[in-house]
Structure formats: C-alpha cells, structure tokens
C-alpha cells in the first residue's frame, strides 16, 4: 500500500505531460490554421451555369424541401420571343397562358405582352422566385434558343451546408464555393453583356448585379 501514492504521483506526472503535449499540438494546429487563413473570405455554394445541363437534380436533391436553387432570367440575353421554348410545352396548342400550353410545372413564369413591332409580338418572361422549384425545365427549353434562363443557388434560402447535397449529385460537377461577397455567377455571354450595360450611367441595377457576380 505504501507505493500507492508514488504510483499516483507518477500517473499524474504522465498525465500532465500528455496534457501539455496535447495542448501544444492543438495550439500548433490552431496557429497553423489561423496562419493559413490569411486574407481568406467566407465562401458559399454556387453553381456554374456554363456547366449546368438542367438535369433536375437541383429540384430533388437539396436538403431543403423547396430547393435553394431557383431559375433566374437574364433579360438582356432574352429574345422576348412570342414562341418561348422555355415557357411553352413543345406540344403547345395555342400561344397563351392556358395550363395545357405551359411547361413550368409550378407556373412560375409570368408572360407579359410588351409591344408589337413589324408584325412580331414581344413578350417579357419573369420568374416568380417564390413559386420556382428549380427543376430547370425552362432552362433546358431556353437553352435551345438564347439560353437567358439559368439556375442559381439563391442565397436567401441556401443553408450553406458543409457538403452541398446537390453538389454531390450534380452530374457535371458544376457546384463549387464562391466568396460570400460575390456569391452569384452568370453565363459567360451574359457577363459580357452586363459589363457593357453598366457603362451606361442610368443602370444602377446593373451595377448592383455586377457587384454580386463572381468574375473569374
């Protein structure tokens, strides 16, 4: 029984030693990580519309019941077509907003008549983000023409999961992380158009958008 305290002392000494070693390791790791951080910014998930093939996974794979991915219309690339391949079902019967003619499964695209010019009617197509489920049907349809519809992770909804469930399932690996202060992307032709547009002083909204867009 006499050697018990000695044994305990020894054990405590070893434990102290290991604790100090652990602390030093953790400190070193922390220092290393903080040191590496440098100018680092926070990042958020975004998809690259140039790679997107509108496969529908965005609608079904997001951890949110209603996906964080929504369709965006880039008006400056839109042809304002009467026969919109993103709006109308390929087997449409008439060019009107009736249910049997629409392609969008939730009816999230609004079609507004703008003007008739030289016998051609022009319509504006606006996405109602609240109703959009990000299925990309219109994106696929529009890609046949101008491709002004494209999908984006909407950052008012995205939870910024550590591992994005859509990214895991994306067939073209179009998802990656962008700096949080420029969390959106445009298709490359759209970006060029936007850059031209901001030069005009009246387009504050274009400048707002450009400030949100990641420019590679």
């Amino acid at each position: 029984m006499n050697d018990q305290p000695v044994k305990n002392d020894r054990r405590e000494f070893i434990q102290d030693g290991l604790r100090v070693a652990g602390l030093v390791t953790l400190g070193a790791a922390g220092g290393f990580l903080v040191g590496r951080q440098g100018e680092a910014e926070e990042t958020v998930w975004q998809l690259d519309p140039n790679k997107c093939i509108a496969c529908k996974n965005c609608a079904t794979h997001c951890v949110l019941d209603e996906s964080a991915v929504k369709c965006v219309q880039f008006f400056d690339m839109c042809g304002y077509c009467d026969i919109c391949t993103g709006y109308f079902d390929p087997n449409y019967r008439e060019l009107n907003t009736a249910a049997e003619n629409q392609m969008c499964p939730t009816g999230a695209i609004r079609r507004t008549f703008i003007e008739e010019k030289a016998g051609q009617k022009f319509f504006e197509y606006t996405i109602d983000a609240d109703a959009c489920v990000g299925c990309g049907k219109c994106v696929k349809g529009c890609a046949l023409m101008n491709g002004s519809f494209y999908l984006q992770v909407s950052h008012d909804r995205c939870l910024n999961c550590n591992e994005c469930a859509i990214a895991v399932s994306c067939p073209t690996q179009a998802f990656d992380r962008l700096p949080a202060n420029r969390p959106y992307r445009l298709k490359s032709p759209a970006l060029a158009l936007l850059k031209r547009k901001v030069k005009h002083p009246s387009h504050q909204d274009a400048r707002d958008l450009l400030s949100q867009v990641y420019d590679p």
Partner: peptide, 20 residues
C-alpha cells in the same frame, strides 16, 4: 409531385392532344 407532373394531369393533357 410537382403540380404539372401529376399523372392525372399528364393523361388529360395527352388526351387533349389527341382530341384537339
């Protein structure tokens, strides 16, 4: 299912196509 992908809707749509 998404509203316009419901089977009932799709069949009706197909019917309408054949019976314009």
């Amino acid at each position: 299912k998404l509203p316009l992908e419901e089977l009932r809707f799709l069949t009706l749509k197909a019917e309408l196509e054949s019976d314009a």
